[in-house]
Simulated assay, not measured.
Amino acid sequence: MSGSQLSRLPLEIIIIILSQLSFRSLLSFGKTSRANYTYHILCMRHLHLAVFQKRIHALIAFLDIDSSWINCQSNIVEDSTLDRGHQIPIVLPQSTRGKEVIGCKSVLRRRSASSESRKQIRGNGNDDVPRSAPQTIRLQNEIFAKIVNRYGNSLVDLEFLAYDLNIQGATAIASNCQGRLRHLGLRFEHPHIRDSMLSRSYWLRPPEGSTAWNSLIGVGEQGKNIGLTRLESLVLERGSITPWQLCMLVKRNVKLRDIRLRNCSAVQPEFLNWLGGLEVDPEEPHKYEEVAPGASIQVFWLENCDSIRSERLGLLADKDDEKALEKGLEWVRALKSLKSISFRQCPNVDPDLVEKANETIWRLPEVVLPYPVKQYNSEPIEVDPDYV
């Protein structure tokens, strides 16, 4: 089909046709003419980007998404983040990598490790000088921002897989995707990626709060006249967003129905109680919410979050006391539209209590327990005295 024939078709049909192309074919098509360049921008609606030091790291990150989130998947909730759009692995340029990356050849491997030789190499402007983790994060966000600046106005589904988010990446999202984006996934937890520039515990805990997230909620110097307001689903993994920032992000996206948080620093009683209407409005500290801000949420997954705490069912004097069962989890009852909740890998939540609370109080269609109940109720193993 020639360009003139294509231009005669309705725009909706053109987008459907071009959406069947691979990413490389779509880019090639966009280079053929100005009109086709516009078409290829418009049909780039679902984009998942993984920016890492190695291609294998990006592939592992994509595989890890499928394996970890499909395990919690049921017929009750349709996961719109899977099998959609273009999954693009991006490898940082060779000049940005050094000996910190396992298996990467570097000039420093063949040189003396003395400080004099290192200074000499840096002074000569050698591109093989190793990068630190903060430099890698900056480069990841630079590449991500360039792509979002080009396609952001047409994106309805965007995911970013890297080490962390900085102001440049957050501003690119908030300024280019504010009116159209429906799904945002920021995944910064990749436990199966081994990078020697990172500490062994790097993936285990979220980083400290960052002002970069202010751009997403339209506050601060970087966030003036920008921000996201029409999200319907949100995925945050190992995010450095604070409880207040997450409150504001949820409040300003009134159509948000699907929230999935994993190893996220914002999952604190402050946020959960606000979501359940138990705390005051963060913008109006003297006004309590009559209807819980999270009353319309249908999917709420909190995984690998150690700030959520509940009582132990075995320690309760009255196991039928609703107040005792919900202590620490009172906010769940106010989420009236909830269909699915997950506490997977939350170490301070008792699975027996969650199961009991759902049977007697919440009655939700899908509840993912922190750990299998059998693990806690297993019978003691008998040991032959002769082998002791």
Rank of each mutant, 00 (worst) to 15 (best):
S19R: 12
K99Y: 14
L165E: 09
R111K: 15
E189M: 13
W331G: 06
K336T: 09
A172T: 07
N36M: 14
S210I: 01
R122C: 10
V101H: 01
A50I: 03
L246V: 00
R97S: 13
R109I: 01
D157L: 12
P380L: 04
S340E: 07
M248W: 08
S196K: 03
N153I: 09
N36A: 14
A324E: 15
P191N: 06
S132A: 12
Q268W: 03
S4C: 05
I193K: 05
T96H: 12
G328M: 07
I17W: 09
L338W: 00
I88L: 15
I137E: 05
V219K: 11
Q222F: 05
P385K: 06
S296G: 02
A324M: 13
K287D: 08
P93V: 04
H57V: 04
K224L: 14
T136A: 11
S201H: 10
C72L: 14
T81A: 13
W331L: 07
I241E: 08
L275G: 00
L21K: 03
I308W: 11
D64H: 13
W69H: 13
L158P: 00
I15L: 15
E12K: 11
T229C: 12
A324C: 09
G169A: 06
G277K: 01
K336M: 01
P351R: 10
R118G: 03
N304G: 06
V219Y: 04
L272G: 04
L313M: 03
I381F: 07
L364N: 01
M1C: 00
I17Y: 07
L9A: 08
G98L: 12
Q53S: 10
V107C: 10
E208F: 08
D258S: 06
L181D: 10
V235G: 02
I226E: 00
K319P: 05
V383K: 12
H192F: 10
S233C: 05
S199W: 05
D64N: 12
G277P: 02
W213A: 07
Q120S: 11
G314Q: 09
S74L: 05
G98K: 12
Q5L: 15
C104R: 09
C43Q: 13
G239Y: 04
A170R: 11
S112H: 10
V367W: 04
E289Q: 14
E12G: 06
R182K: 15
R257Q: 13
R252T: 05
H192A: 07
N348C: 13
L198E: 02
I341H: 07
D320R: 12
S340V: 07
N141E: 04
S340C: 09
E359C: 07
D127T: 14
S210R: 08
K31T: 13
I70S: 13
D306I: 03
D386S: 15
I76R: 11
H48C: 14
A162C: 13
E189K: 14
S7A: 15
V332K: 08
V349M: 00
P282L: 02
Q120D: 05
S28T: 01
K224G: 04
R150S: 02
